[in-house]
């Protein structure tokens, strides 16, 4: 459905080189990306700022032309066949608006129906679903310029879906949203993805979006793919482990070892100890620990995706 082969985008920047002289320098925003996305997939596309995420998305949607390489979406080449492609894809740029600033939200939707030439019945049905799921009714008559960011983003999502696109590109859809709005957007997208007939490509800096929504994670850095697979695969690759944090009445005897786990931190004069679990079940570790020490409290902490990704970015 979506194919990128050796996709590159270079930008020329002029850098100061001396008092008056400026040198041209080529910067590769996207540096040879190969990626295939199948129908129905939900792909999280992440990377540090400036890694080339948005640039890739712009090339996929036909807004930017690639410097070299191939890209096809539905078998169409995005830039030359942009208007045809536009009928089949939905795009939300979290930092931009596709709605008309001066028009009420409802009127923007009506205009979009004519722009995309959607039959009235289909338009009504889709709008009704979105109104229900995203609680739009309270502000359908409000001009877009007066909407809060959360309201506007719900409007943007609706606007991107009214023509029934098969692929939805979302560029940081939860940026700047409060917790409740984020959850609303996420659960809406989760439901959309669960139906299986919309392919979703999502860039974000909020990894909770990815954990909640995406079964495939593509990490790019400096314009190259550095990871492509599930979140679990990422953990396995970077050796992230679950940890067991225990609070003890007495510090552990010196030289104490727990089979299948290693001590990674000792705090509060030895009253709080953190073990990293090397594949062993937390139950076995807890049982072994309780047998020798008096445990006041304990918790098992799942590996944090943010840590893994931070390590990944720093390595790059």
């Amino acid at each position: 459905m979506i194919q990128m082969r050796e996709l590159r985008k270079d930008f020329t920047v002029r850098v100061k080189a001396g008092r008056l002289r400026r040198e041209k320098r080529t910067v590769s925003a996207v540096d040879g990306i190969d990626l295939t996305i199948e129908p129905g997939e939900m792909v999280g596309y992440i990377g540090p700022n400036g890694a080339g995420k948005s640039t890739t998305l712009k090339m996929l949607t036909g807004v930017l032309s690639p410097s070299s390489g191939e890209v096809s979406v539905f078998g169409l080449t995005p830039v030359p066949q942009r208007t045809r492609l536009a009928l089949r894809i939905g795009v939300v740029f979290g930092q931009r608006s596709q709605l008309w600033w001066d028009l009420p939200l409802g009127e923007s939707f009506r205009l979009l129906r004519h722009i995309y030439r959607v039959p009235a019945a289909e338009h009504e049905a889709r709008l009704r679903r979105c109104r229900g799921l995203l609680d739009l009714d309270a502000f359908l008559d409000t001009p877009v310029r007066q909407l809060s960011l959360g309201q506007r983003m719900r409007g943007e999502l609706t606007a991107a879906l009214l023509h029934g696109p098969r692929v939805l590109f979302l560029d940081e859809p939860t940026i700047g949203l409060d917790v409740v709005s984020k959850q609303a957007v996420r659960s809406f997208l989760a439901e959309l993805g669960a139906s299986g007939d919309v392919t979703l490509v999502l860039t974000t800096h909020d990894l909770a979006d990815i954990e909640r929504l995406c079964d495939r994670l593509v990490v790019i850095d400096h314009g190259r793919v550095v990871h492509d697979g599930t979140i679990e695969a990422l953990h396995a690759r970077y050796g992230s482990r679950r940890s067991l944090v225990v609070e003890l009445d007495e510090p552990l005897p010196p030289g104490f070892t727990l089979p299948g786990a290693s001590v990674t931190g000792v705090e509060a004069d030895g009253h709080r100890v953190t073990f990293a679990l090397d594949g062993s079940s937390s139950g076995a570790a807890v049982a072994a620990l309780v047998a020798v020490a008096s445990v006041r409290d304990l918790s098992v902490v799942e590996p944090d995706i943010e840590d893994v990704v931070a390590r990944l970015y720093q390595a790059g």
């Binding site: 289909e122 889709r126 679903r129 098969r166 139906s195 919309v198």
Partner: peptide, 19 residues
């Protein structure tokens, strides 16, 4: 969600000018 989900677009076949 099926109804929001994709359906092949029917773009007023046969009457492109009017559309």
């Amino acid at each position: 969600m099926d109804r929001i989900g994709a359906s092949v677009l029917t773009i007023s076949p046969g009457r492109p000018f009017r559309a």
